[in-house]
Design a binder for these strands. Structure first.
Lengths: 336, 336
DNA sequence: TTCATATACGTATACGTATTCACAGCATTG
DNA sequence: CAATGCTGTGAATACGTATACGTATATGAA
């Protein structure tokens, strides 16, 4: 079946190309008889309009861009990102948009993506996942008036639309949970200093402690990366303390897994001697031994909000608020 | 910074729009002095060509389409797909293409995707992941002469370009591994009947047994779905046999996890009394107790081949073969 | 000098669609 | 009955780029 144009459909229907276009766009000012004739020809020939021409003419591509600040390898490994991407695909589709995905960690390729997707008008808007604290593109994007939404936080400019987890609340909730189980000496195995997620969850942890009348003890807080090895090392150190913790909040499930391993190797019973809780409710939480309690972030809500806000911006609808905070919830398993 | 066109760049450089286009396309037939002048103006104004106009004119979009036959929810859950998507993003980028991703399980939306991506010329080519055995789109795609590549198998028509795991080899390898450990009574917990992956791995399993002079015993093969629950149930049944297996090949890591759980609950030691091996080498394999041996499929190779073949088809280069088979390798851990 | 050839550039056009404009036909109004 | 508005339609145009084509200048050979 060769590619037809409106021109040819018009000829076959004995109308003008303009009328074909009007029929396709559902313009009411077209005679019913003609409309039927044109629709019949379109149906018979299986005509579908050319998206490229439509884009050029209408200045709309019907495509959203998704840029993730992770190397493809990291992306493949972390279930959080894959779930996020999958959900964004879904919601973009529901909103009538396609999705163009790019991933890049290097600054150089980040610039390229910026040029390639945005300036070329290849997409109508952008979702940026976890931008850096200082991201030189933010001001430029704002300046261009290009529609974009952040998943994560970006403090410097509050004109930015963003959707984020309630990480402070999540840290608070995890700690609260352990306090409720009677624990009084609770450690926090964090990630990198200066990363919003880690700082925020730590802040929630601290607030829960203080509300319970407990002092924040720096020796019970471990900084490192997001690896299983970091969880293992930190837990080993904590267990060696003169007055070891009876419960541990780990900044991420993978880190928590490392902590679990260390505890088991030290012959410490979980959750009897040490309780452990992680974040993200990764799929593997239910498979590890013992199954890991975790604070689940609502990835679908995150994706839904981000997509919806972006589409509203593109279609120039009113957007009620610039910052959205998505609440988390606790999934209790055997490790606490 | 407002959007410029070649027209305006031309005016600023005191040349024609055609010359600007030639400079941008690297046409050699343009005076060096002029070229520099134009490039300077382009640089100063940060001009980037409009991809939509380029697409319309050149009949190329510079975008690949990826269609996955899974609901977004399944997609989010299965690490295999997320890794695959991540790798395809990477290789498409390296090949100078963007990636447009869609996912859909329903037949209805499948048709829509077909119309939306292909007939609208929104993408230059398509990667289809695990199409159904009878997929009505294959003949149509072939008929249109539209470039596309399958990840998975499609038997009916061999004019189709495809890239697939060596699933037979993988099943053979897993079984071989267990035979090498001295096991003589080996079970196979499969997935759905009629799914290529399950049948093929089963075929490899069977061949390994027969080469070792062992009979294929139907009571040692369990059919079901891809769930953890199926693994659990099947393992429970197998352990209740008068002559239970000493080793189990599970069609998927998640199924294997279920089997592990059943064994533990029955007080059966792993790997001393029953060895277990899975497929895919999912990230969680190293976190479970005991860590799970698994046959790793080379996802990056799969993605790389598919992307490369597709790009070659689009750019009308010679493609050496229609079917590519990617070998697997075994990752041994404590469960065997 | 004269013609052929190559080179470097501009003019014009096409890609397929959406939309503005103009106009014909008809109904409605004072 | 003239003036006015409304409806449905086609002609023309614009979106921004790439390229076929034509032409002016430079270069070389006769």
């Amino acid at each position: 079946m060769p590619d037809l144009t409106q021109e040819q459909i018009a000829e076959l229907s004995r109308v003008s190309q303009a009328t074909v276009s009007r029929v396709l766009r559902g313009d009411p000012r077209v005679n019913e008889e003609l409309r039927q004739r044109v629709l019949e020809v379109i149906r018979q020939h299986g005509y579908v309009p050319d998206a490229r021409a439509q884009s050029l003419r209408s200045q709309r591509t019907g495509t959203l861009g998704l840029v993730v600040h992770r190397s493809p390898k990291q992306l493949a490994r972390d279930p959080f990102f894959s779930a996020l991407i999958a959900a964004i695909i879904e919601f973009a589709g529901e909103g009538g948009y396609h999705l163009c995905v790019d991933a890049a960690r290097a600054v150089q390729s980040r610039r390229a993506i910026y040029e390639d997707l945005l300036r070329t008008r290849r997409v109508d808007g952008l979702i940026l996942v976890e931008p850096q604290t200082r991201d030189e593109r933010m001001p430029r994007l704002l300046e261009e008036g290009f529609p974009f939404v952040l998943i994560g936080r970006y403090e410097p400019i509050d004109a930015v639309y963003s959707v984020d987890n309630d990480n402070i609340g999540a840290g608070y909730m995890a700690t609260q949970h352990l306090l409720g189980k009677g624990h009084r000496r609770i450690a926090y195995i964090s990630g990198l200093r200066g990363i919003f997620v880690c700082e925020d969850r730590g802040q929630g942890y601290r607030r829960a402690l203080e509300e319970a009348g407990l002092a924040y003890a720096p020796e019970l807080v471990a900084w490192g990366d997001f690896s299983e090895a970091h969880g293992y090392r930190s837990m080993s150190r904590l267990l060696g303390l003169p007055d070891p913790p009876t419960a541990v909040v780990a900044v991420d499930d993978v880190v928590a897994i490392g902590a679990l391993r260390a505890a088991k190797e030290h012959g410490v019973a979980i959750p009897q001697q040490v309780a452990v809780i992680g974040f993200n409710d990764s799929p593997f939480c239910q498979y590890v031994e013992p199954p890991l309690s975790s604070v689940a972030v609502d990835i679908r809500a995150l994706a839904h909000l981000a997509t919806q806000v972006l589409i509203d911006l593109i279609e120039e609808r009113e957007v009620s608020q610039r910052r959205h905070i998505v609440p988390c919830h606790l999934v209790e398993r055997a490790s606490t």
